[in-house]
Amino acid sequence: MKAQEFLVKEKFPLFWCAGCGNGSVMHAIVRCFEKLNYTRENTVVVTGIGCWGKGDDYINTNTFHGTHGRALAFGTGIKLANPELNVVVLMGDGDGATIGGNHLIHAARRNVDVTSIVVNNLNYGMTGGQYSGTTPCNKTTSTSRYGHIEHGFDLSGLVAAAGAPYVARGSVYGIVQLEKFILEALKKKGFSFVEAISQCPTHFGRLNGMKEPAGMLNWIKENSVSVSSANQLSDSERENKFILGKFADKEKEDYSTKYLRVIREAKKIKEGGK
């Protein structure tokens, strides 16, 4: 099926603000669906709540739209009950990394074969630009008018440390690289995670001197470095950069495959008991 056919064109134009990166990431995802010959029937897109949580409105595969922060937990059940499905979980930084942070690290540790794509626009867009778990220190948001005093998560580092076999960070500016990461993540057997650094011109951009729609994307471009060149940076320098590249790419047996052994052992015990 063609990428465009995975989109619900009757619901266009997209609900997101002018210049928001969500549409760019969604477009990349459906291009990957086409490349991998996914079908509407064998794919489930799972979302939580937030701007990116509206992504499933525009994708015409099976969809499950759950609660704020819990998309991965719904996705875990969907996948484990039918391992044949392609399960793709879309979350924002507020959704997936803040309220849902615990689910994220445990899904990575558990290694369920789902792909999560977190659009990280550094704030809560839908509720009006409040700070999230990834908002960088010193930045202004609608709830950190005097400058943010917390530090944001290095999400990809966090998920890699939790044991995910595939972790990569790209950006909407580097859309070709981002699409490559999404494709690799979808192909990976096991928990895969792609973080897409994205722009929220309406809130984060506006409050941080980048009110033009293209302004925040340009800031992302100017502050991006590759994983390899980031090695030469100090910790404080790293914190102010978007480090793009792969954080993990390894083979690791996924939960469903391992569970087949559990079933085998359990049946032996049952037969033995008779």
């Binding site: 210049g19 011109p201 729609p213 293209a214």
Partner: peptide, 14 residues
């Protein structure tokens, strides 16, 4: 024209 929101990203980064 109906889908474009005039964000300027295409022209800025061309």
């Amino acid at each position: 024209e109906k889908l474009c929101k005039r964000c300027g990203i295409c022209s800025t980064f061309c």
